[in-house]
């Protein structure tokens, strides 16, 4: 695809100053959006560290688990890095991420390793969406809503906007159903319209694969609040998609 056209602002933006501006806002002005932007910028670094450890592993470990440890290490590095010291963040963060992945692998019990990170994310998601009220006025409608919400989750996982953890591109082939592609495009459009915090939770959970606890750390929210934002985002998407 043709690269995005350069804008006037691109012409004058100095990447070092632009990154310093993000650090200033994240660190000294407590701006969680800038913190998220920095996290997104360095997520490739975290994944590459996790991938190296995946190659060295001595027992069955889910690659997703290694990535969670890498993300955790990245979040800690974001908090501890001093942007005034002049050390590039990548050089500072890489050994810390690697250390966190190595420690995480040691801490993992065999039982943990059996339950894949993907399964854990789905359990967490399910808990956020439920439980259905004890006696809903319309039980069938409540069940249908839950089914749609879970299906939405599966579609969000496969929107193909980001590469999956295993590196496989799961975007639809041109031969796959038009309706599926249209729904996916509608979801992508609706994601852009979500309130900022809801959009951030959905992006980080479904696209990056972060647990609610890590999203809470990233956005400076409580885990309960992240779960609420997830639920309300999914409900909002469901309501809006009904009009498509």
């Amino acid at each position: 695809m043709k690269p995005t056209r350069e804008t006037g602002l691109d012409i004058v933006t100095d990447p070092v100053r632009a990154e310093a501006s993000l650090w200033r806002r994240a660190r000294f002005e407590d701006d969680s959006r800038s913190r998220e932007t920095l996290f997104n910028r360095y997520i490739v670094l975290a994944r590459s560290v996790a991938a190296r450890h995946f190659g060295w592993r001595r027992r069955a470990v889910d690659r997703g688990d290694l990535e969670q440890f890498a993300y955790e290490g990245l979040l800690q590095a974001l908090d501890r890095y001093d942007p005034l010291l002049g050390v590039p963040f990548g050089a500072y963060a890489r050994p810390r991420i690697a250390g966190n992945v190595a420690d995480g692998m040691k801490r993992m019990s065999d039982l943990d390793a059996q339950l894949s990170q993907r399964q854990r994310l789905r359990q967490e998601r399910m808990r956020s969406l439920g439980p259905i009220e004890a006696a809903p006025a319309d039980p069938l409608a409540a069940l249908a809503d839950l089914a749609v919400d879970l299906a939405l989750g599966l579609m969000l996982e496969g929107t193909g906007m980001v590469e999956q953890a295993d590196g496989v591109d799961r975007r639809p082939t041109p031969y796959e159903g038009l309706a599926w592609r249209q729904t996916q495009a509608a979801i992508a459009a609706e994601l852009e319209r979500l309130p900022a915090n809801e959009g951030a939770v959905i992006r980080q959970h479904y696209h990056t694969g972060l647990t609610f606890a890590h999203i809470a750390d990233l956005l400076r929210l409580t885990r309960g609040r992240v779960s609420q934002l997830h639920k309300s985002a999914i409900e909002r998407l469901r309501r809006r998609l009904r009009h498509h």
Binding site: D14, A20, S21
Partner: peptide
């Protein structure tokens, strides 16, 4: 100008 070159238009 410094703010502009920092991407803060």
């Amino acid at each position: 100008f410094f703010q502009l070159t920092s991407g803060e238009a």
